[in-house]
Design a protein around this nucleic acid. Sequence first.
DNA 1: GCGAAAACTTGACGCAGATCAAGTTTTGGC
DNA 2: GCCAAAACTTGATCTGCGTCAAGTTTTCGC
Lengths: 248, 248
Amino acid sequence: MRPEDLPEVRHLPLFRDMDKNNFDELLGRSYDQTFPAGLEMIRQGDPADFLHVVLDGAVELYGKWGGRECTMAVIRPVSTFILAACIKDLPYLMSARTLERSRILLIPAPDLRTTFRRDTEFAVSVINELAACYRAVVRNTKGLKLRNSRERVASYFLRQSRLLDDAPSYMLPVEKRLLASYLGMTPENLSRTLKALESHGVKVNGMRVIITDRVKLAELAQPDILIDGPDPDALGSGSSLPPVQRRA
Amino acid sequence: MRPEDLPEVRHLPLFRDMDKNNFDELLGRSYDQTFPAGLEMIRQGDPADFLHVVLDGAVELYGKWGGRECTMAVIRPVSTFILAACIKDLPYLMSARTLERSRILLIPAPDLRTTFRRDTEFAVSVINELAACYRAVVRNTKGLKLRNSRERVASYFLRQSRLLDDAPSYMLPVEKRLLASYLGMTPENLSRTLKALESHGVKVNGMRVIITDRVKLAELAQPDILIDGPDPDALGSGSSLPPVQRRA
DNA sequence: GCGAAAACTTGACGCAGATCAAGTTTTGGC
DNA sequence: GCCAAAACTTGATCTGCGTCAAGTTTTCGC
């Protein structure tokens, strides 16, 4: 891997507190690999051989069943994903494909497991990471079961804005097609919902989201700390889209 | 707590590998409390002061938003719940109420956190528990997003049967009202779905489920290892109903 | 074991959201 | 910068599921 990536990986909550030597050894056993866009890197059901770290690009995690697919998360640099499968040494529950050309660091799962057994600080980090991931998925489930799709879209927009210090405008971090699937709806329904939301305080123009009336939007979305955070959550939780890019 | 409960708690995957002295100390600092039926023991948003262990009775975990509620899980003895909130020292994401008179062991969260810092085996157990919980919730999410309600009911029935070595008949572990909410549907819709499933290999009579044609039912449910398990999962994962009682 | 409350069922109806089928716009490779 | 492919939008239609309302059955406290 490129030497300039090392500090970025080291600064991840998962790795920042572990012993320096253990970190170096773990990274030393890892592989830096580049994948073209649109490649299925992981097929759900495959044995979990490596913890993945996105160094560059973007990766979609999704589930398949029968002929259907649903987007579970999109991971952007620098974050890890599929930690739980590696720890349990069980098959991946989700598939992963690159959305663009991506550089991925592959950390062998067995090394991961031996490392947290001998490095308490790392074990604590793993515990915190997993607990955060778990809570992220639970919050996501609550949103899916308690809100209808219009409410999910509205609260997604507010949540993203909040991550940018309540920015009134920002760019969507992913295509609408993916956003729709992530939110558990069809692209057609999302499209119509966006139009309907124009009278509720938010306007979407291409990839740009413009919050025109935050109060009105919040009235509809009824943002809830126990669903929308903030909660210092893991990004690679397998249930969130990446934070938005700030307006240029 | 009653001395006869101790071995049952000790045999939980979360506690069985830790140092005996640490276990005894942890339990020594805990409280054994009995709650009447129908009591809201935990209100979502409360600070996570205790890890809960159901010793007797049954506890429903549920989420609230606006005026709506949804059942996330039902916990039966002997299992723990809300581990993640305790570890992160963050508010509970779910509320909990007793479904019947229940005896609960309360383990102070701070003691929990200090214990896994000095007991590696316990830390590893916590890691495994959290990873299992995480995977359970992810599988649950996949089921919610990829299956329609009829498919969810059908696969729930098959899953329960499989937990009893493919028993052709068993009793529902919870009221239909709860099952409906857990599966993300209304009681009315569940009721109608049950009738419709009679021509697809399963008959429900009161609380009794009778699988009349396993092949036909499986055709509809399309059971999938990556959604329905088996996967040696945590029961207190916050996303499953208890295993069924075997036919008397 | 009686009576009220809760759980469950059934029917009628409406709506949110899926599906199908064209368009139109945007993206990206050569 | 052009062209094809993909993403997005829009409309028409259908349907799964929620809602409301009125039973019926089961449960449970006294």
